Amino acid sequence: MNDFFLAANRTFQFSDIEVKQIQMKSLDLFSQHAETVKEFLADKNYSDEILIELFKAHTVEVIHTCVMTSNLTADRIFDIAKDQALFLDMLRAVLTVNTAYFKPEKPKRRTKQSNEKSTWFDSFQYLIDCGHRHDDIMNMPYGAFTQYLKAAQRNELRKMRSQVNLMRSAQHAQNREFKKLLEDLKVVD
């Protein structure tokens, strides 16, 4: 799904089925069952055979995951499961719309492990420091939350790089060059 789909909290509609993105405020309830689905599908594709195997092995978890990310009840999902093609399309849509949860991006570089435990509150506080509000974060889809978090981290790294460059320039500047550097950094009204 693209960035605007995530940011606008859009849904995917086909037939009478609406597939939704999981929101942060429901992530704890969702992950109770969806984590099993995620672990089963780790490094696998969403082929019909794999999805059938998933449903047979973890029926309750699949049904609960679909209930939380669709406009359907468990009974209606069992009815849809009688039509294998429709059920597989619905399950594939649930997995695709919520790709950020089921197939998270691998980190591009290693980070040092810290002895400090990081919690969801740390992530929330980080976004709040960047101007987001708590209620807005709770109503974000999980995919948008992860993208905002990455964007905030990239922005912080850009700012730090800029500050390091400025410090280095200031340290090596002669008195006149330093005054010019300060003059260039003044806010113009």
Rank of each mutant, 00 (worst) to 15 (best):
Met1Val: 05
Asn2Asp: 12
Asn2Lys: 03
Asp3Met: 01
Asp3Gln: 03
Asp3Gly: 02
Phe4Asp: 04
Leu6Trp: 03
Leu6Ser: 01
Ala7Arg: 07
Ala7Gly: 01
Asn9Cys: 09
Arg10Met: 13
Arg10Ala: 09
Thr11Leu: 05
Thr11Pro: 03
Phe12Lys: 09
Gln13Phe: 01
Asp16Arg: 02
Glu18Arg: 04
Val19Thr: 03
Val19Glu: 00
Lys20Tyr: 05
Gln23Leu: 09
Met24Asn: 03
Ser26Glu: 11
Leu27Ser: 04
Leu27Arg: 02
Gln32Met: 09
Gln32Lys: 12
Ala34Met: 03
Val37Ala: 07
Val37Ile: 11
Phe40Asp: 07
Leu41Val: 05
Ala42Phe: 15
Ala42Leu: 15
Ala42Lys: 15
Asp43Gly: 06
Asp43Phe: 09
Lys44Glu: 11
Asn45Phe: 06
Tyr46Glu: 13
Ser47Ile: 00
Ser47Cys: 02
Asp48Ala: 15
Glu49Gly: 10
Ile50Gln: 12
Lys56Glu: 12
Ala57Thr: 12
His58Met: 01
Thr59Ile: 02
Thr59Val: 00
Val62Tyr: 03
Thr65Ser: 14
Met68Leu: 11
Met68Val: 02
Thr69Leu: 01
Thr69Ser: 14
Ser70Gly: 05
Thr73Gln: 04
Ala74Val: 01
Ala74Asn: 11
Arg76Met: 09
Arg76Gln: 14
Arg76Phe: 07
Ile77Val: 08
Phe78Lys: 15
Phe78Cys: 06
Phe78His: 14
Lys82Trp: 02
Asp83Arg: 13
Asp83Phe: 04
Asp83Glu: 14
Gln84His: 04
Gln84Val: 06
Leu86Cys: 07
Leu86Phe: 06
Leu88Ala: 07
Leu88His: 06
Asp89Ile: 04
Arg92Trp: 09
Ala93Gly: 04
Leu95Asn: 07
Thr96Gly: 08
Thr96Tyr: 09
Val97Lys: 05
Ala100His: 03
Tyr101Arg: 05
Lys103Ala: 07
Glu105Met: 08
Glu105Cys: 06
Glu105Arg: 12
Lys106Val: 10
Lys106Leu: 13
Pro107Asp: 08
Arg109Lys: 14
Thr111Gln: 13
Thr111Val: 05
Gln113Glu: 09
Asn115Met: 09
Glu116His: 10
Glu116Val: 10
Ser118Asn: 05
Ser118Trp: 07
Ser118Met: 10
Thr119Met: 03
Ser123Gly: 11
Phe124Glu: 07
Gln125Met: 15
Gln125Glu: 11
Leu127Asn: 04
Ile128Asp: 00
Cys130Ala: 14
Gly131Tyr: 13
His132Gln: 13
His134Asp: 04
His134Met: 14
Asp135Pro: 00
Asp136Ser: 11
Ile137Val: 11
Asn139Cys: 02
Met140Asn: 01
Pro141Asn: 15
Gly143Ala: 10
Ala144Pro: 00
Ala144Lys: 07
Leu149Val: 02
Leu149Tyr: 12
Leu149Asp: 06
Arg154Asp: 15
Asn155Phe: 11
Glu156His: 10
Glu156Ser: 14
Leu157Glu: 15
Leu157Arg: 13
Arg158Ile: 13
Arg158Asp: 13
Lys159Ile: 15
Arg161Pro: 00
Arg161Ser: 14
Ser162Gly: 10
Leu166Val: 07
Ser169Asn: 13
Ala170Thr: 00
Gln171Ser: 14
Ala173Pro: 04
Asn175Leu: 12
Asn175Tyr: 09
Lys179Ile: 12
Lys179Glu: 14
Lys179Tyr: 07
Lys180Val: 11
Lys180Met: 13
Leu182Pro: 03
Val187Cys: 01
Val188Leu: 07
Val188Trp: 00
